[in-house]
Amino acid sequence: MKDFLKSSVGRKYIMGLTGLVWVGFLFAHMAPNMLILFSAELYNAYTYSVTANKILLYAVEAILLSSLVIHVLMAILLTRQNRVARGAQYAVSANGEKAVSWGSRYMAAQGSAILAFIILHLITFKYGTYYETTVNGVVMRDMHRLVVEVFQSPAYVAWYFICLGLMVFHVSHGAASVFQSFGILERKLQGGIKKFAWVYAIVIVTGFLSQPVYVFLFHK
């Protein structure tokens, strides 16, 4: 098994597995947060409910954090190896039928921006100002107030658009490639998987972006 994990193929399985954890998390994060479009109470109650069970919370956080760390470290390792393997660059790069997609070519750069986004995102929200509110007699964190405050800044909303825009490419390429890396792809599935990955990435990012846009436009 050590040989497997040290091989180039084995490392792609690790990249795929850890990426997949986050691909799944994106949906689990985006969908309930859509509550912000409907009610501050529901939004806060949801935040309260997912943070109430500390054991479950820490377990999920541990999985997410370890996946992220492994994904990033492995990406750095592979990118460095791949640079060495490439050696010299060409004077001209392909731009006709033999050119490659933008999303696949700049995975490392997109990943770096997304990592910066995740760190800033945690500082702003999870470790941001702690407001309190009472919903149905239960004292809880007023996450809604913080989110509304943050999204008043056009710069912050713009930053969201840039990073989540990059995420469309990163997630769509990753979500399709994982089937390739895991070796579960068959010829007849190739086209369908690519389309599925694009739709998934666009749905996730549209969902996420609708939240700051809604707050920015309708919460003054």
Binding site: S8, A85, A94, S177
Partner: peptide
């Protein structure tokens, strides 16, 4: 791997070429 080739990132450049 021992020859020092890189790993696949599924860009599809190889298939196109």
């Amino acid at each position: 791997d021992a020859e020092g080739f890189g790993s696949c990132t599924s860009t599809g450049a190889c298939e196109a070429a």
